[in-house]
């Protein structure tokens, strides 16, 4: 019994760390969906770009500063964030501006093509050979009881909490945040009230790029090898966004973490004790999702919109 409990705890820690990555991607979905009702299919690719850009900065700065140390990671992180902001502005110009009066479907299509472009362009620039990302924390771990926790996982969890706290504060306490909320509720009314919705949309894309890039920076050291296929994690984060209810910030976090935990536990303890779980390992999250949606069609934290004819 104790054995099972330790196993479950161990898997949960790992699952939460994985779930935080999902949560960051899901949060990117949420931001854009809330403001523009567009599902951004390129969110996973934004994360991948972040991982690559961070890798690029780490190698550059370690060349300049002589060797990899704490400052290199810090500067690389700052560089990635500046890149993310510029990238968000660029995306706003490419995707959002030209299509602002077009149906939502067109914008979704644009994000799909953006995903294809980003994936191939990154591969063309970075070359086909996988990169070996460095981790600022090495392989260091510590133990609580018999549960092993890697410092990398803890740092991922802490970063996610910090980011979410910042965003929560921003959306609820600052002028721009409230303007964004207003815009997402009713763009026309917001415009009439004097909110510059063009700038709001730009902010939305910048934030989406920002969470994507930070997600990539955090995820990369967790992978032994970095290649462009990590962008498919974006597809895995869809159920997280949906589960929490598209458009809800706490929903994205809770959804991501639930999915992360389900995934690791089903791979671990569950499939150890129940042979048949192995058959449904990779779809168990989808089954949970469909069941939840059958009970709550708008996800756990989503609010049903009242429709008028």
């Amino acid at each position: 019994m104790n054995d099972v409990l330790t196993g479950l705890l161990q898997e949960s820690v790992s699952g939460i760390a994985l779930g935080c990555i999902y949560a960051l991607i899901a949060f990117g979905f949420t931001l854009i969906y809330r403001a523009t009702e567009v599902v951004n299919f390129a969110q996973g690719e934004l994360m991948m770009v972040g991982a690559y850009v961070n890798f690029f900065f780490v190698t550059q700065f370690s060349g300049v500063l002589g060797g990899v140390n704490f400052w290199v990671y810090l500067f690389a992180f700052a560089g990635s964030i500046i890149f993310a902001i510029l990238f968000g502005i660029l995306l706003d110009y490419i995707i959002n501006r030209p299509l602002k009066d077009e149906p939502v479907f067109s914008v979704i299509m644009a994000t799909i093509s953006l995903a294809i472009i980003l994936r191939s362009l990154t591969a063309i620039i970075a070359g086909p050979i996988s990169l070996v990302p460095a981790s600022p924390f090495g392989d260091n771990t510590f133990n609580i009881g018999s549960v092993v926790i890697s410092i990398l996982d803890i740092s991922i969890i802490i970063w996610t909490i910090v980011l979410m706290a910042i965003f929560y504060f921003f959306f609820n306490k600052t002028r721009w945040g409230i303007a964004m909320k207003a815009t997402s509720t009713d763009p026309e009314a917001a415009q009439l009230m004097g909110i510059p919705i063009k700038q709001v949309y730009r902010f939305v894309w910048i934030f989406a790029a920002l969470v994507g890039v930070i997600g990539g920076v955090l995820l990369a050291p967790r992978m032994a090898l970095l290649d462009t296929n990590i962008s498919y994690l974006g597809l895995k984060a869809f159920p997280a966004a949906i589960l929490g209810g598209f458009g809800s910030i706490p929903g994205a976090v809770v959804g991501g973490i639930i999915l992360g935990i389900i995934e690791t536990i089903s791979m671990g303890t569950l499939s150890f004790h129940f042979e048949w779980v192995k058959e449904i390992n990779d779809i168990i999250v989808w089954i949970v999702l469909i069941v939840v949606l059958m009970i709550r069609p708008n996800g756990l934290f989503g609010i049903a919109k009242v429709k008028r004819v």
């Binding site: 030209p98 077009e102 149906p103 799909i112 093509s113 995903a115 191939s120 591969a123």
Partner: peptide, 23 residues
């Protein structure tokens, strides 16, 4: 040139242009 990613890139690029100019 390396065929694979280049092909994907052209494909995505044409699609994006198409959507922007012919939504």
């Amino acid at each position: 040139l390396e065929a694979g990613d280049f092909q994907a890139f052209i494909f995505g690029f044409i699609m994006l242009l198409f959507i922007i100019f012919q939504p």
